[in-house]
Design a protein around this nucleic acid. Structure first.
Lengths: 260, 260
DNA sequence: CAAGTCAGTTCCAAATTTCGGAACCGTGTC
DNA sequence: GACACGGTTCCGAAATTTGGAACTGACTTG
């Protein structure tokens, strides 16, 4: 195991649930001996990837991660194009918008567009959640091959909220439905009372994929309003797919013009 | 040289001026042989610290840096307290506010508070600039010991803008002035026509230090307005120093009450 | 106030990695 | 067909990492 692998293993211990860690935390989470942990933490701190609170002695991601994280944003094009469209939809509907990417079987929130409706933002950028339990996460999974999906889902199927697919078979059924209808919806999953609709966008040029969702309070929306969101999303998806050369665009076009 | 050192060396090649790099760029910037560069880039990409554009094949900071960078923000207290105060001053004066930290002889922008005056934001968060050429940078340096300052300034004094201190002696003279008067000002340095005033804030609890500045157009402000900014900053500095237990607070208090 | 905990540091020989030069390869371009 | 770019693979020598154990120094607790 290389020094870099070990370093990453430590860095991956940090999350929004655990934004800072003590020496003992790191030892417990990585299972590495004391001396190794000591050396590694010092290296990471010295190089700026970690910082240490002088008072509590706890470690947290460092200045370098802040700088590099800002640069990651620069990689725009697909994301900023989607964000622009999403902003308009959120302004019209008042709901909250999310853009996320897939990483393994989880998704990471990249951008959020707060809506005018007072539903507080629950997933700030950087947040990592199981993709299986969100509308845009499942929309992204639905665009992968079945083998790829199987490879991403952990050996032991994770424990998910009540309304999420509870096993691999249920998951595949939902993904098939998304593939057939092109609509991905979630309600009362990650957070009770919150629903969302989403879709996946794939750049024809680079092949990178993002998931776009609009989120709302289930109680505070009518079926008509949700249908409206569905229409808005379908229009946005069609426009973005055309703009980005999403391979799905051709399919949809063919179907609509009866070529197939 | 450890694998981690090499990895960091690569990561540090990225900057807002160079947000993405080709294989050849990395080789040239690090001076490492091809095989080492290849291995290292692959490791960094595989672990999420770098991403590779599938189309251009260029490398850029990866998803992991984005996630960790968001977590760095969590380390709030001192910064968010300062930001709150800065926000009020910027609202009152209409100017743009900056909060930065010192890293070696450079500073990194952490937060910016856009003003209502239409001076475009020139230093987005994550931006790295020589601390010697900014008002808050010099204010931070002024609070270090002379040996510490000497250790931070590179062996060959850097080439700085016209109005910045041009050599070590000039620098020390300006820092002494800041120490005497408590006021740090800059005009026409990093950017022509832009001036700023700043101060350094040090937490009495953790010892961490940040630099706070208000920036404005030199042409568009009168001497009276600049004096007003000076007063606003002095008031903010006094309040924040009291709130954070800045060691300077005791000194100032002692002087003001004539204890010394 | 002795004992214990937390957060490290230092040491060392053994085990593992890394290093860099060279050869090779696939794609795109002149 | 040659050349450049952007890599990958191979290999032995050289350097680094590893983990157990012993040791510190600051706090806390019984």
């Amino acid at each position: 195991m290389s020094a870099l692998t070990n370093a990453i293993e430590i860095l991956r211990c940090f999350s929004s649930a655990r934004p800072d860690l003590s020496f003992a935390d790191v030892m417990a989470l990585t299972g590495k001996p004391k001396s190794s942990t000591s050396r590694l933490l010092r290296s990471l701190r010295d190089c700026g990837l970690l910082e240490q609170d002088p008072h509590t002695r706890r470690y947290r991601p460092g200045l370098l991660t802040f700088e590099l994280g800002r640069l990651h944003r620069a990689h725009d094009d697909l994301i900023s194009m989607a964000e622009r469209e999403l902003r308009e939809v959120c302004a019209r509907t008042g709901h909250t918008g999310y853009i996320a990417v897939l990483d393994g079987f989880e998704q990471v929130v990249l951008r959020i567009v707060p809506g005018s409706n007072p539903l507080r933002v629950v997933n700030p950028p950087g947040q990592r959640t199981p993709a299986l339990a969100t509308s845009n996460g499942r929309a992204m999974l639905a665009r992968l091959s079945d083998e790829d999906i199987r490879a991403r889902v952990p050996a032991t199927y994770p424990k998910l909220p009540r309304n999420s697919p509870q096993n691999f078979k249920q998951l595949m059924a939902r993904l098939d439905e998304i593939r057939r209808t092109g609509v991905s919806e979630a309600a009362d999953e990650s957070i009770e009372g919150v629903g969302s609709q989403g879709f996946a966008l794939k750049s024809g040029e680079t092949g990178e994929m993002i998931g776009i969702a609009v989120s709302y309070s289930v109680q505070a929306t009518t079926a008509a309003e949700r249908a409206n969101v569905r229409r808005e999303l379908a229009a946005m998806a069609a426009k973005l797919r055309r703009l980005t050369g999403d391979p799905l665009d051709q399919d949809t076009a063919r179907i609509q013009t009866g070529t197939r």
